[in-house]
């Protein structure tokens, strides 16, 4: 299980990286943390002619508060996000989700740019970028453009990038909400999710006046459930809300099945997690 032959380039600027990709003429691939790419290379499922290593581009690694948004450089490691006080205070759902991302050794290498670009349907950061309405900053030979997270994920393991484009940073608007929850079930601690639900709500007396809902692990891409969000703002909060919410979520998602969980079981998990997530979100005093 050895990769096929490739050339290796280690640029120190984004411009140089773009140039290398352009020169590779569609045969190039960028290397970030390598946690998803290296197995693909070893299985010879990915056979780039040129590997462009981003790890020497120091300017791609940062977490910053920019007005009412948090900006994260594409090369920022999972572990830095997990441990960042800024993330903990401004993007609490992300902070809670990070400890579900693989294992420590993998979090030390894996990057946010790599995770969203890899677009695994059961990965946390792609889902969170939808959840928070993130904007991705993408650079190519003709400069930078912005892509909404909603437009970025095309299919399982497929994003909307051109072969000579890279993600340079992501911006996450901060939510001013009263309660939130991140619920996930994985076979083992650190495994990819069988199903996961993220919820955040802003309460106004006995109603919810703003809500965010996203799920993952159940479809070919993570899903933002805007329909459910809309319905939540029109119902009164009572003891039935978590169950109602679970019904809303399961009625607008039809889960996939695979070796680890059948569609029926995933659908069941989704409902259970949605219920737990709403219970926790409503329990918080905001």
């Amino acid at each position: 299980m050895k990769p096929a032959k490739f050339d290796y380039i280690a640029p120190t600027t984004v411009d140089a990286a773009i140039e290398a990709l352009s020169t590779a003429n569609g045969e190039g691939k960028v290397l970030a943390g390598g946690q998803s790419l290296l197995p693909l290379l070893n299985f010879r499922m990915a056979r780039p002619a040129v590997l462009v290593d981003l790890n020497g581009i120091k300017e791609l690694s940062f977490i910053k508060l920019r007005g009412d948004r948090i900006a994260i450089g594409a090369l920022t490691r999972h572990r830095e996000i997990e441990q960042s006080p800024l993330i903990a205070s401004k993007l609490p759902v992300m902070a809670a989700a990070m400890r579900h991302v693989a294992h420590l050794a993998i979090r030390n290498r894996g990057t946010i740019g790599g995770s969203v670009s890899h677009a695994d349907p059961a990965a946390e950061l792609p889902m969170l970028s939808l959840f928070y309405d993130a904007t991705l900053s993408v650079q190519g030979p003709s400069g930078r453009r912005s892509v909404a997270a909603e437009d970025f994920f095309v299919d399982a393991l497929t994003n909307c990038l051109e072969p000579d484009e890279i993600v340079v940073e992501l911006e996450f608007p901060v939510l001013q909400h009263s309660g939130w929850a991140f619920e996930e079930v994985a076979r083992r601690f650190g495994d990819f999710a069988l199903a996961s639900v993220a919820v955040s709500v802003r309460r106004k007396s006995s109603t919810i006046d703003d809500a965010r809902v996203a799920v993952m692990g159940v479809a070919d891409t993570p899903l933002r459930l805007r329909q459910v969000e809309g319905k939540l703002t029109s119902i009164a909060i009572d003891g039935q809300t978590p169950d109602r919410f679970a019904e809303l979520v399961t009625s607008c998602v039809s889960a996939n099945g695979d070796l680890h969980a059948s569609a029926e079981y995933r659908q069941h998990l989704l409902g259970q997690l949605a219920k737990r997530a709403m219970q926790a979100s409503l329990a918080a005093k905001g």
Partner: peptide, 28 residues
């Protein structure tokens, strides 16, 4: 609780990697 080599009806091994062949790890 965890481990199972799954062969389909065509004799193909579906759980050939440690992503799909699940073994208990320390927390389990």
């Amino acid at each position: 609780l965890f481990e199972e080599l799954v062969y389909d009806d065509d004799g193909q091994l579906l759980s050939a990697s440690l992503v799909d062949y699940v073994i208990p790890s320390a927390p389990e």
